[in-house]
Computed example of a mutant assay.
Amino acid sequence: MIKVRPTAVAGRFYHRESDLLRQEIVSWLSPRDRDDRLRAVIVPHAGYRFSGQLAADAFSYIQPLADKFRRVILLGPSHTMSFKGVAIPSVDLFVTPLGNVPVDKALVEALRDNPLVSLDDAPHAKEHCLEVQLPFLQQTLGEFSVLPIVYSRAMPWHLEELLNDIWDPDDTLLVISSDLSHYHNYEEATQLDGESMTMIEEFVPRLTPHQACGATGINTLLHLAQSRGWQLSRVGYMNSGDTGGDKNRVVGYVSYLVSQV
């Protein structure tokens, strides 16, 4: 029997109707030249009305590489449960309004004996940070398989080791899902996020959860990129105060591309 992880946040974080969802994503995507050096992206995971355009700005660079990336590793923080290590799902498919995305069983099997990893559907059941990336990937890549990884209490060097064991950056895209600061006023958030972006762009892998909810994932990617001599470029920054949210309680968003030199 095929096990399915149904959508948890369609109708809240993004359109439930497939036509409306596709139209919105297409309206945000921009034509980009192909760059085969691209290896990973950092993208926000808020509701599309707040961070969808900024996420799409990064995914636009993925679209020309649809024939290259047949696998995607999604890495993001648990918002609903606390646990040790990382959780990967036992399901066969993730479902969105745009269709089904198969879970990469070969990569799941490769991690089965890793002591950091639990095969557990519970942390994925209501988690939004990976789900919201899937419609963008479906629109830009078409057909692909995905390894969804949710982490809780894990260290960046442990995740770096895990990814080094399974990630082939020549055919597998790594997507790091993270927002920046949460619930400061507009001016405070802009200053704090500016300091965080300086750390990211100077490859200082010491972000804290106060600076980014997906700090561990970002720090992991910084370790990986620095060890391989890769470069990082910012696509854009904004916060929810720029996209219609309360400017007294904003959430910061940033997108980055990581490329082989």
Results as ranks from 00 to 15, higher is better:
164 N>C: 14
137 L>D: 07
150 V>F: 03
153 R>Y: 09
242 D>G: 07
63 Q>H: 10
147 L>C: 10
137 L>R: 03
36 D>M: 12
82 S>R: 15
105 K>R: 15
215 A>W: 00
259 S>C: 13
187 E>D: 13
190 T>S: 08
46 A>Q: 02
136 F>S: 08
54 L>I: 10
139 Q>A: 10
202 E>P: 00
236 G>A: 13
226 Q>W: 12
119 L>E: 15
174 L>H: 08
54 L>R: 13
109 E>L: 11
62 I>E: 03
111 L>N: 14
198 T>S: 09
185 N>I: 09
132 V>D: 06
127 E>S: 02
232 L>E: 01
237 Y>N: 08
111 L>Y: 14
176 I>K: 12
39 R>P: 07
26 V>G: 10
199 M>V: 06
224 L>A: 08
17 E>M: 08
125 A>G: 00
133 Q>M: 08
249 R>T: 11
89 P>Y: 08
212 A>Q: 09
194 G>A: 04
37 R>L: 11
209 P>E: 04
223 H>P: 05
153 R>Q: 15
47 G>L: 04
57 D>G: 08
22 R>S: 12
130 L>E: 13
67 D>I: 04
46 A>R: 02
79 H>Y: 09
39 R>H: 08
25 I>Y: 07
237 Y>P: 02
91 V>M: 03
175 V>G: 05
57 D>N: 15
185 N>G: 05
260 Q>L: 15
61 Y>I: 09
73 I>V: 14
166 I>E: 03
99 G>I: 01
123 P>K: 02
209 P>H: 07
60 S>W: 10
115 P>W: 03
86 V>T: 12
110 A>L: 11
116 L>D: 14
113 D>E: 15
142 G>T: 07
9 V>Q: 05
140 T>I: 06
152 S>Y: 07
251 V>C: 07
102 P>I: 03
34 R>Y: 05
72 V>D: 02
258 V>S: 06
156 P>D: 01
205 P>I: 03
238 M>N: 10
30 S>Y: 11
117 V>K: 13
95 V>H: 11
154 A>E: 09
255 S>D: 04
56 A>Q: 14
203 F>Q: 06
140 T>S: 12
227 S>R: 14
188 E>C: 02
157 W>G: 00
128 H>R: 05
92 D>C: 03
76 G>W: 05
150 V>C: 06
82 S>D: 14
121 D>S: 08
19 D>I: 04
134 L>N: 08
116 L>S: 10
128 H>E: 11
196 S>H: 00
256 Y>H: 08
19 D>F: 01
113 D>Y: 14
168 D>V: 15
190 T>I: 11
200 I>M: 09
248 N>V: 11
108 V>E: 11
172 T>I: 10
61 Y>R: 13
39 R>L: 15
88 I>F: 06
207 L>C: 10
194 G>K: 00
100 N>M: 12
129 C>Y: 01
128 H>M: 09
154 A>N: 11
225 A>C: 13
99 G>A: 02
261 V>L: 15
130 L>Q: 09
77 P>F: 01
9 V>R: 05
172 T>F: 09
203 F>N: 04
114 N>Y: 12
173 L>S: 10
40 A>T: 06
109 E>N: 14
74 L>I: 08
211 Q>D: 06
236 G>F: 11
169 P>F: 14
81 M>L: 14
189 A>Y: 03
189 A>C: 05
241 G>K: 01
